Computed example of a mutant assay.
Amino acid sequence: MLRRFAAVSASALLCLVGTAGAAEARTESLYAPSAVVLSISKGADAGSAVVQRAVTLSCAPTASGTHPAPEAACAELKATHEGGTFGGLLASPATDRMCPQHFDPVTVTVDGVWEGARTSWQYTFGNACTMGVTLNEGAAFSF
């Protein structure tokens, strides 16, 4: 009887170890999702602005979505993501390009999940020219 219990216990232990090994293999293939909607809106606040253009962008496990250049946009978002926001997208305006001083606000947003965490970021520019200069014609909002 003791021999039979030892054999059953040993086989149960092997099953558990095999199951744990399989679970470890599965967790190695998991990734933190990064899927967002990027939008450009007319207005001073994302809540009341009228969306002019919007695209979807998924960056993990591969770059895809309706964005015309998903690989470049994902690379730019990854490089500029700082402290839970995308403030790194905002660069110092180039001094060689002048913009009119009229107020016609444009708001850009990033909403969704980034590296597994919920994200919602927005920034309002005085006009479309200022947006283009500040974003340095980057890939993320070139759609």
Results as ranks from 00 to 15, higher is better:
96 D>C: 07
138 G>E: 05
106 V>D: 07
143 F>W: 08
141 F>I: 01
73 A>I: 04
9 S>V: 07
21 G>T: 12
24 E>G: 07
45 D>S: 14
76 E>C: 11
136 N>E: 06
108 V>F: 14
100 P>A: 15
13 L>W: 04
64 S>N: 08
20 A>R: 10
49 A>S: 12
29 S>E: 12
79 A>V: 11
76 E>Y: 06
75 A>I: 05
43 G>S: 15
1 M>L: 14
27 T>G: 02
93 P>M: 08
104 D>P: 03
138 G>N: 13
98 M>L: 08
114 W>C: 02
72 A>E: 09
67 H>L: 03
92 S>N: 11
45 D>E: 15
80 T>M: 14
64 S>Y: 02
42 K>A: 13
97 R>F: 12
24 E>D: 09
141 F>E: 05
118 R>P: 04
83 G>T: 13
83 G>M: 05
105 P>W: 01
91 A>S: 10
118 R>Q: 14
62 T>P: 00
58 S>N: 03
34 S>K: 05
58 S>T: 15
8 V>K: 02
128 A>K: 09
21 G>A: 11
120 S>Y: 10
18 G>F: 06
72 A>R: 02
136 N>C: 00
88 G>D: 10
75 A>E: 07
127 N>Y: 05
127 N>M: 11
122 Q>E: 13
101 Q>T: 11
105 P>T: 11
69 A>R: 10
111 D>Y: 04
106 V>S: 09
105 P>L: 01
21 G>N: 03
42 K>F: 01
133 V>Q: 02
129 C>I: 04
60 A>P: 02
87 G>S: 12
22 A>H: 09
105 P>Y: 01
70 P>N: 10
121 W>M: 00
131 M>D: 01
102 H>T: 13
111 D>A: 12
27 T>C: 02
59 C>S: 03
118 R>K: 13
30 L>E: 13
108 V>K: 00
2 L>C: 05
53 R>S: 11
7 A>I: 15
66 T>D: 04
15 C>Y: 05
94 A>Q: 04
71 E>D: 15
39 S>Q: 08
105 P>I: 03
76 E>V: 08
138 G>Y: 01
35 A>D: 12
5 F>N: 09
132 G>L: 03
84 G>P: 08
139 A>F: 03
48 S>Q: 15
110 V>K: 00
68 P>R: 02
12 A>E: 06
2 L>R: 14
132 G>E: 10
127 N>G: 13
112 G>R: 05
63 A>I: 00
82 E>D: 14
116 G>A: 15
51 V>C: 02
